[in-house]
């Protein structure tokens, strides 16, 4: 347990260190001995063919799955088995491959939901909505408005998200994840199903999140162009195993990666 001097440690030690993770569902091996680290402030991409174990990896990181073997070190501390809502309190937020928003609620309310773990006043105080509770809500709303401004979705602030086009729903979902003020943001295929223009917008937002808010981002994405442009470092997985780890340039020239993607004659 090494909790002292975290400011200094953050530079030396990674934000998250994933050591030798293995995850099995019955006889199915989802992950096998995967190790990599996530440095503070970087954009870390996880890529790989379908069924490579990318989403499982993300679910292990956010505590939804508990691996049978291996350790996860987060902010210099070893993390034991943990409930997902406690993960959120530790500063990890995510978006989903399939959009998971509250369709009947407005974009604003959806994003406001992201702040649930940061609400301090209790149920009764909020019911009375007086004094501190009211001030607190104003505070939260201010933060949410900054996110709305950041993502340029002012025009849909009050629109029920069910009525929004796909690209904008994705943006609202990113907004909700950001509302939790995460240290580590997990994005599961944020650009899937988008047209080029929407993709470009989304890329800019992802980059800006890293630049402006200093959030560390882990990103799963299929679009190689996007990954190579955005990511600082890339992890490549295939059949539940890690086959390469490095900066985009190295990854592009790595023979194992090429084989995994294009297939290889046996």
């Amino acid at each position: 347990m090494n909790s002292s001097g975290s400011g200094q440690k953050a530079i030396e030690a990674p934000l998250m260190d994933i050591r030798n993770i293995s995850l099995r569902f019955g006889g199915v091996v989802a992950l096998e001995g995967v190790s990599f680290d996530i440095a503070e402030g970087e954009i870390r991409a996880i890529i790989g063919p379908n069924g490579a174990g990318k989403s499982s990896m993300l679910n292990v990181i956010n505590g939804f799955y508990t691996p049978q073997l291996g350790e996860i070190w987060y902010e210099g501390r070893r993390r034991g088995s943990i409930k997902p809502h406690n993960i959120a309190r530790q500063g990890i937020a995510r978006t989903f491959q399939n959009i998971a928003l509250f369709e009947g609620m407005s974009a604003l309310d959806n994003i406001l939901c992201g702040r649930v773990t940061l609400v301090r006043s209790g149920f009764w105080k909020q019911l009375l909505w007086w004094g501190p509770a009211e001030r607190e809500e104003t505070e939260h709303r201010e933060r949410v408005e900054q996110i709305i401004d950041f993502l340029e979705i002012q025009a849909i602030r009050k629109t029920p998200v069910g009525q929004l086009p796909y690209g904008l729903q994705k943006r609202v979902e990113l907004g909700r994840a950001l509302a939790a003020e995460p240290k580590l943001l997990l994005l599961d295929e944020p650009m899937a199903g988008m047209n080029n223009e929407e993709k470009e917008d989304m890329c800019r937002f992802v980059l800006d999140v890293g630049d402006e808010l200093g959030t560390t981002i882990v990103l799963i994405e299929h679009d190689m162009g996007v990954v190579m442009d955005l990511a600082d470092r890339v992890v490549v997985m295939d059949h539940g195993e890690l086959i390469a780890d490095g900066v985009p340039q190295e990854i592009m020239n790595n023979q194992d990666v090429i084989d995994a993607y294009l297939g290889v004659a046996h």
Binding site: R141, E142, E145, Q146, I148, D149, Q154, R157
Partner: peptide, 13 residues
Amino acid sequence: GDQVAYREKEFGI
């Protein structure tokens, strides 16, 4: 001097 000259909606207000 105390009359409003400019308004801009920012952060929803």
